[in-house]
Amino acid sequence: MNELSPANRTELDLRLAALPLDVAPPRDLWPGIAASIAAAGVRPATARWRRPLALAAGVAITAIAAALGWQAGRQSVTPLAATPVAGTATDRLVQASFAMPEGHEYRATRIALERSYRERLELLAPATRGRIEEDLAAIRQANADIRSALAADPQSAVLNRLLESTWQQEFDLYATVTRNTDPAVPRTRT
């Protein structure tokens, strides 16, 4: 195999280093850019990958509220907003493990929570169950979209935070459904 001699390697490096990194375009391209921006109208307030997440969050609130409303009517369940978050072992584990989603503790917590969620979901009416499942799908889609965006920009702090927030939303959904369908927990009508 042929290789560059040290002298020629240095010569090649010098020639590459001598290239200017900035090369002015032969004409001013700003008018075309300005026209495109104007034609596109006002810039979206949020980037494309944020929309699914916002949607997921909105749907999550709606679905959980609907589930709790259903429960309130049938089982005298207190709505979520009026339910203090219990400092249970599960809650603490969720919070503690959240920062390490690839870790064993996260996976174990997620499996346990999802199993409990699935069992409790069966207690809900089909319509309510469907809405919550749609919500979970939206959160997971948001997670996939953000992962996709991170592939192109892995250092993005905002994307990483948003990715974390999807895990948190998924956990919150599991925990909320589980907590508020627990027959052992006494409920009071507000």
């Binding site: 375009p25 391209l29 850019i33 921006i37």
Partner: peptide, 20 residues
């Protein structure tokens, strides 16, 4: 390259809200 420059700045304008 000129097309890419234009598209780059238009894409950047749209993505600016996400800029950290």
């Amino acid at each position: 390259a000129e097309d890419c420059v234009q598209d780059t700045f238009v894409n950047a304008w749209r993505a600016l809200p996400a800029f950290e």
